[in-house]
Amino acid sequence: MARAYALRGPCYARPPQDDEIDRVSVSDQTTTTHVLPRWAYVPGVDTQADRVTLDRVKALVPERFDGFVPASHAAVLYGLRLNDEGFFWEAHEILEAVWKVAPKGGLDRICLRACIQIANANLKLKMGKPQAVKRLIADAATELTELTVRRRSQAGDSLAAGFPAEALAKELRNWARHYWNDSANAPQLT
């Protein structure tokens, strides 16, 4: 979680033109490994997001998850990776798609909501909105604390069962006290 923030990999400084979007190759896509978006979208700065890449992963999300959201599901892993690679808006989009079909009232929804708030806080940090960052980090820490309390007896392969909620909540609170305006220490999810 304490890795330095840096855009890496196939991230470009500008969104491509419309004719460039049509030339995206799908040959390097599999059901378990997905390329990163071609640029990190920032609302108010960029005119569009790389929806082509995101839609491929969203297509893997089922109409609903029965019982729990598997921690190993490709969309979950991709969403967490997007945040940690600096694609905060994109992480929010993917994790929200999973959250929408997670079992209602379940622990996975709490976990996903916290992850979405962290990605959103990272985006707001990048956009220079410190008050929104503080609120979102506090909300995420609260969600993670609730998850820690409620999952005491849960075991299994769900996202919530194995998520380091207690440690992440503690780290978020520490980050909020000391680094909240420092994007070099942006909160990570993995």
Rank of each mutant, 00 (worst) to 15 (best):
45 V>W: 00
99 W>L: 06
97 A>R: 09
90 E>F: 08
160 A>R: 00
14 R>T: 10
148 T>H: 06
31 T>R: 14
83 N>G: 09
57 V>I: 15
99 W>V: 01
91 A>F: 09
184 A>E: 13
68 F>N: 05
94 I>K: 05
190 T>D: 05
33 T>S: 15
43 P>D: 04
166 E>T: 04
74 A>V: 13
190 T>P: 00
143 E>T: 00
74 A>K: 05
145 T>G: 03
1 M>P: 04
168 L>G: 02
24 V>W: 14
160 A>L: 00
30 T>I: 12
147 L>D: 01
150 R>W: 00
68 F>G: 02
49 A>E: 11
157 D>K: 12
71 A>N: 06
160 A>Y: 00
81 R>E: 11
160 A>C: 02
123 L>I: 03
33 T>N: 12
9 G>E: 12
188 Q>L: 12
46 D>I: 00
17 Q>W: 04
77 L>W: 01
177 R>F: 02
15 P>S: 08
159 L>Q: 01
137 I>L: 12
86 G>I: 10
142 T>V: 10
4 A>V: 12
80 L>N: 04
1 M>E: 12
182 D>E: 14
145 T>Y: 08
157 D>C: 02
75 A>S: 15
61 V>W: 05
39 W>R: 03
63 E>V: 11
84 D>G: 09
133 V>W: 08
69 V>W: 04
98 V>Y: 09
141 A>Y: 07
64 R>K: 11
83 N>P: 10
52 V>T: 14
68 F>Q: 07
181 N>L: 11
114 A>Y: 04
158 S>M: 01
12 Y>A: 13
73 H>G: 11
166 E>S: 12
96 E>H: 04
89 W>E: 02
62 P>K: 10
115 C>G: 03
174 N>V: 10
31 T>F: 11
153 S>P: 00
130 P>G: 10
131 Q>Y: 07
176 A>F: 03
39 W>C: 02
156 G>T: 03
116 I>S: 02
98 V>L: 08
132 A>F: 09
130 P>T: 10
58 K>G: 05
172 L>N: 07
138 A>V: 11
96 E>L: 04
153 S>M: 06
65 F>C: 07
173 R>E: 15
71 A>Q: 14
65 F>M: 04
90 E>Q: 10
113 R>Y: 01
101 V>H: 05
162 G>E: 01
66 D>V: 12
82 L>H: 08
43 P>V: 06
110 I>P: 01
70 P>A: 11
105 G>E: 04
155 A>R: 15
149 V>C: 00
16 P>T: 08
97 A>H: 06
102 A>Q: 06
67 G>C: 13
158 S>D: 01
100 K>L: 11
153 S>W: 04
173 R>D: 15
61 V>H: 08
180 W>R: 14
12 Y>E: 15
40 A>S: 15
59 A>P: 02
86 G>M: 10
76 V>G: 03
12 Y>T: 13
134 K>C: 06
29 Q>F: 15
27 S>Q: 14
112 L>S: 01
123 L>W: 06
180 W>A: 14
10 P>Q: 10
72 S>P: 00
27 S>Y: 13
58 K>C: 14
70 P>L: 06
34 H>F: 15
28 D>F: 11
